[in-house]
Design a protein around this nucleic acid. Structure first.
Lengths: 237, 237
DNA sequence: ATGCTGCATTTTGCATACAAGTTTGAAAAG
DNA sequence: CTTTTCAAACTTGTATGCAAAATGCAGCAT
């Protein structure tokens, strides 16, 4: 849809404020993969991406290595890169891990978050709710992401933050696949209500449980949608 | 002792079975960082490392990007790379996360491991015990690592495996810092005894708890040793 | 007609050359 | 004697060129 393989000008895309080509390239590919502009399993030929992004092969290859380490692309020796596939099994595995990490974050955050930070999360929560009732999905996604990030950051654990950031990209990918059904959306909002209450009460264990359930339910919705919709599953079943 | 900074021949180090320079470079740097040959905070000048490893800057830079994504090195724009510092705070954060992940793995593994795999872990366990009583630390470390890896793999969750592998490098780094005191070593063996018993009984929750305690105790030992030994902590305490 | 072999094209891996930014040290001004 | 400035050396960032591996295709043999 948005794939225009041949863009003649090599460097005339954006102002590009600083000389940070590598970082820009990582972010650009990141976005393209998360939003699905580059599809799972798609072969990533270096030359084509270079023309598309207006960079040479060196920074592009470095970016691919970075993304490979984050699990977004798969590298094969002498055979190039492809967008990492995202099977339902992968999504299940992913949600198990992220759910567990966010539950850990929830327990830690309940101890270390300041009252101010909790209030700020409350603000984000109700702004998110606003986007929900207005049916503004992208804005909802963004706020949702910021809330989850706030809880992770509230755990004050840099390792946890780093791991989570890498995995969050894949979670976003999974969310983009089916476009979120209304009833699941509403349920997710209710779950967030309960989580906010637990957070305000600083009940870490409860928040942890709710968080795990939240992910479990989200996973179930994706699996339900994916089972009926996604045919490119070739696993043995 | 193993650092020979100037090796004139660019490709005469080892047979190097395949033309996989990038992978080799990643592994080599990985090892040098984990074992402490490259010290935390040390500046990594590309040219020097190139001569040392016998590769040119291109694969070296790609390797640095990969390691940065794994958290072993820190990159700064236009200012190069340095070995990521590993403060006691970092180690605490790290063990919290890895402990939580391994507890998750433990619960999953108790469900999905075959009897055969459990028996194999038993073999590893007693081989490790042998190295313990023989006071063979490096071999002990290696077996210990293999046991933990077996449990992670037993969870049959590729995402968990990937995250764990990245973090395991840093855990190894932390273990190498103080050289493991005899009483802590003995205690760790006892903890592994209990964990093996829980595994054989397939008591996932119990194994998860033991695993978290195992990491918590290991962390405490490192902190105790580090507090008396490591002066380069400049944090406020 | 089908399968295999060998060559041509394509694509990746690595090295080197060049450009841009950062650090340094020395000289000059205060 | 201290401070500031400026330039030279060094380091990193990017582009390009060349070699090796893989893929695809045509021609040949069976």
């Amino acid at each position: 849809m948005s794939a225009k393989p041949a863009e003649a000008e090599p460097a005339a895309k954006e102002p590009r404020r600083k000389g940070r080509l590598h970082t820009n390239t990582v972010d650009a590919l990141h976005r393209m993969i998360v939003t699905g502009e580059l599809k799972p399993g798609q072969k990533l030929r270096e030359q084509e991406l270079c023309e598309r992004l207006g960079v040479s092969r060196t920074p592009l290859r470095e970016a691919l290595r970075t993304l490979a380490a984050q699990g977004l692309v798969q590298l094969t020796q002498n055979r190039g890169a492809e967008v990492a596939p995202l099977t339902l099994a992968d999504i299940t595995a992913l949600f198990d891990v992220v759910g567990s990490l966010e539950a850990l974050a929830a327990r830690l955050a309940c101890k270390s978050l300041t009252d101010e930070a909790i209030a700020e999360i409350g603000v984000l929560h109700y702004r998110m709710m606003l986007h929900h009732v207005r049916d503004e999905l992208p804005e909802y996604f963004a706020l949702n992401q910021r809330i989850h990030r706030a809880i992770i950051e509230g755990a004050r654990n840099p390792v946890l933050l780093g791991v989570w950031q890498a995995l969050a990209a894949r979670v976003e990918r999974a969310k983009y696949l089916p476009n979120l059904q209304p009833n699941r959306w509403k349920a997710a909002m209710h779950e967030h209500d309960a989580m906010l209450a637990a957070l305000v009460a600083r009940d870490g264990d409860e928040l942890g449980r709710l968080m795990e359930a939240h992910f479990s339910n989200g996973l179930a919705a994706i699996l339900a949608a994916g089972a009926s919709e996604a045919p490119p599953e070739d696993a043995g079943n």
